[in-house]
Amino acid sequence: MTSAHAADAAGQAGPKVNPVGELDAIATTGIPAKYAAQLPKVKNQLTGLNHLSELNQLHQLTDQAAPVLNLVNAVE
């Protein structure tokens, strides 16, 4: 297959799909707009998970520093 044919085939696939946007749309399917606006968006929930990962990294750092700084009793 030549690159020209590959480009044509890729162009026929249609626009790129945003999976997170699609999940948001599916999550609110059949829910009245008044209530759908109150539901948490998948994007926001995934962002929250990223912050949870950052919190875990911070916890790893404080675990290493706690014995040096006598913070063991303060943390517990």
Rank of each mutant, 00 (worst) to 15 (best):
M1G: 02
M1E: 05
M1K: 01
T2R: 06
S3D: 12
A4M: 10
H5R: 14
H5W: 10
A6K: 14
A7V: 05
D8C: 08
A9I: 15
A9R: 06
A9C: 04
A10S: 09
G11L: 14
Q12D: 02
A13F: 08
A13V: 10
G14E: 05
P15D: 06
K16M: 10
N18H: 08
V20Y: 04
G21N: 12
G21D: 06
E22N: 09
E22C: 07
D24H: 10
D24V: 12
A25C: 08
I26W: 06
A27E: 03
T28Y: 03
T28C: 03
T29L: 11
G30D: 03
I31E: 09
P32E: 15
P32F: 04
P32H: 13
P32K: 14
A33L: 13
A33N: 10
A33Q: 11
K34T: 12
K34L: 12
Y35K: 10
A36V: 05
A37S: 07
Q38I: 01
Q38C: 08
Q38N: 12
L39A: 09
P40Q: 01
P40L: 00
V42E: 00
K43V: 04
K43Q: 11
Q45E: 15
Q45R: 10
T47L: 11
N50T: 15
L52E: 03
S53H: 12
E54F: 01
L55M: 14
N56R: 12
L61Q: 13
L61H: 10
T62H: 08
Q64P: 02
Q64S: 11
Q64I: 06
Q64V: 07
A66C: 03
A66R: 06
A66I: 04
P67T: 09
P67D: 03
V68L: 13
V68D: 06
V68Y: 14
V68P: 01
L69E: 04
N73V: 02
N73W: 01
A74Q: 11
A74Y: 05
E76Y: 05
E76Q: 11
E76R: 13
E76L: 12
